[in-house]
Write a protein that binds this DNA or RNA. Structure first.
Lengths: 153, 153
DNA sequence: CTATTTTAAGACAAAAGACTCTTCATTTAA
DNA sequence: TTAAATGAAGAGTCTTTTGTCTTAAAATAG
């Protein structure tokens, strides 16, 4: 798998936040129900994003989490780096430590090109890009639902 | 991680076989030592490749495994498919079941492009390509060694 | 102040992946 | 024919990932 499940859940969650126009705090409980993700597990993942500065949280009634920046300014790669770390974009495809220009493996050059295309895709796609597309075409962020249902109160 | 460790070991092993010019059976024990992979674990992985028809094996003294085809005709994707299966090249980046043209997720289109570039790289690179490059530039398939050492008896 | 709502934190359990070990069947060489 | 070398198969262990549960801390509403 390219991304860990935690990372995928983090992406779905930030995408959900980006698709809400209002900048209010959204309870994690509500998000977990809408996105069909275990509440406690999602909480743990969002804590990582909060620690990383991508989200801010607020405790108590009317509390929850929200994006710290405008979603246009958050790229998918920001979420991926916060949760899965940089290894996807730095590691050797053959798993050799220290593989790089200086001490490459036979696959290094070709993999570096492919890896860059992954990085570019993640870096050039903002949360807004996907949220807008999701709304416009009524796509889905869960196994069965659609955007319309997702955003309904 | 893009590829499982089993898959990476399978690639290193087939690459090693491709770099031996003679078409003799190579004992797995020897390969495991050269490649610094646990013998029993490597055995299990190579059994998958044998079952898939990429390798053939021979028991008894002077036995071992060898490629069934010329290494020019084996692409990296053949090994990846035999061990990790097709999921890397078919799965949704957001983990949604049935994500495709008919019922896509918001990321589907962009991911499909990236995924194709991964597929193309794996499909257009043969074992010979990498073996030749490894020999010519004396690269490595292990943490510390180099090709010269790898091919020495 | 008190009860309620919410995130924070960490212990714990289950599942999957990575790896080891033992036993067995096959083949060859002497 | 017997011993040695080898792959085949599967049980078992360790680690990481994934997911659950409990308790604490913070904030608000009344």
């Amino acid at each position: 798998m390219l991304l860990s499940k935690s990372c995928v859940y983090g992406l779905r969650a930030t995408l959900y936040l980006a698709s809400k126009e209002k900048e209010e705090f959204i309870p994690i409980k509500r998000m977990s129900e809408k996105l069909e993700i275990s509440f406690h597990f999602l909480t743990k993942i969002l804590q990582q994003l909060t620690a990383d500065g991508l989200l801010e949280s607020f405790k108590g009634p009317n509390g929850g989490v929200r994006l710290t920046k405008a979603p246009q300014k958050i790229a998918l790669i920001d979420v991926v780096l916060a949760i899965d770390g940089p290894k996807l974009l730095t590691e050797c495809a053959l798993g050799l430590p220290g593989c790089g220009l200086k001490n490459p493996c036979p696959l290094h050059d070709k993999w570096a090109v492919t890896r860059d295309s992954i990085r570019d895709m993640l870096a050039n796609t903002s949360l807004t890009d996907l949220a807008e597309k999701g709304k416009a075409e009524n796509l889905r962020l869960t196994d069965d639902g659609d955007f319309e249902e997702l955003l309904r109160d």
